[in-house]
Design a protein around this nucleic acid. Structure first.
Lengths: 107, 107
DNA sequence: GTAATATGCAACTAATTGGTTGCATGTCAA
DNA sequence: TTGACATGCAACCAATTAGTTGCATATTAC
């Protein structure tokens, strides 16, 4: 599961909204997820496919229905491996910024 | 600073690479950031503009040079407000997944 | 002033993306 | 088996995006 796929999956507001809805109620069908999205079923399908490819959503067939489940692991890997890196040195970066902005004001 | 702009800014590998390089050495000029990016200066400029619009990078002129600084605040806001939400209920979501996958195997 | 350096602006192209419509397939219920 | 329901597939369109080239502007050095 490439980190790039996860980042791109999260880039679209419609897809983040789908994740939010699965977060609120896990295991929804495609039909249920289409409601209130303001786009056609096929458009929603494509968004869900991107989320599946990023492994952020996992699916399972139940008869003629397709159930969608949130997989929080890749998102947390991003948080740990990428954002965590920035978090660890956030104070230093902010100090850099502050120093620079102060220099800007004082001359 | 819209959260959507930050997500989209992070979606491109070239832009994440630029952030990584600023993380390694803060306050670099456009010219310095162009090195080893494998694209023209104008392409790098466009990426940096997107990062600026997302407020993930802050700039300052020094004579004819433009210095670029990492601003870790928006990224940490995403971590806190969005990823944090998933993190808090990660165990529950993983339990849902596990249960579902087990049901898949057993019948 | 003139040349070199550092960046900015604009037009253009190619690829990707978000969305559509139309039709096909598979499953459940009567 | 027939009809209704849930999803899948494919072609197509419009908008956005990543990148290019060419030229303009501003600063520094001589």
């Amino acid at each position: 599961m490439s980190m790039d796929a996860v980042f791109r999956a999260l880039a679209d507001p419609a897809r983040r909204r789908l994740l939010d809805r699965l977060y609120g109620r896990n295991g929804q069908t495609l039909g249920a997820l289409c409601a209130e999205m303001g786009m056609t079923r096929q458009a929603v399908t494509k968004h869900l496919l991107l989320l599946e490819e990023a492994n952020v959503v996992v699916t399972q067939r139940r008869g003629r229905e397709k159930l969608h489940f949130l997989n929080p692991v890749p998102i947390n890997e991003i948080a740990d491996r990428w954002i965590g890196k920035y978090e660890r040195h956030r104070v230093r970066a902010l100090a850099d910024l502050k120093k620079q902005l102060e220099g800007k004001n004082d001359g």
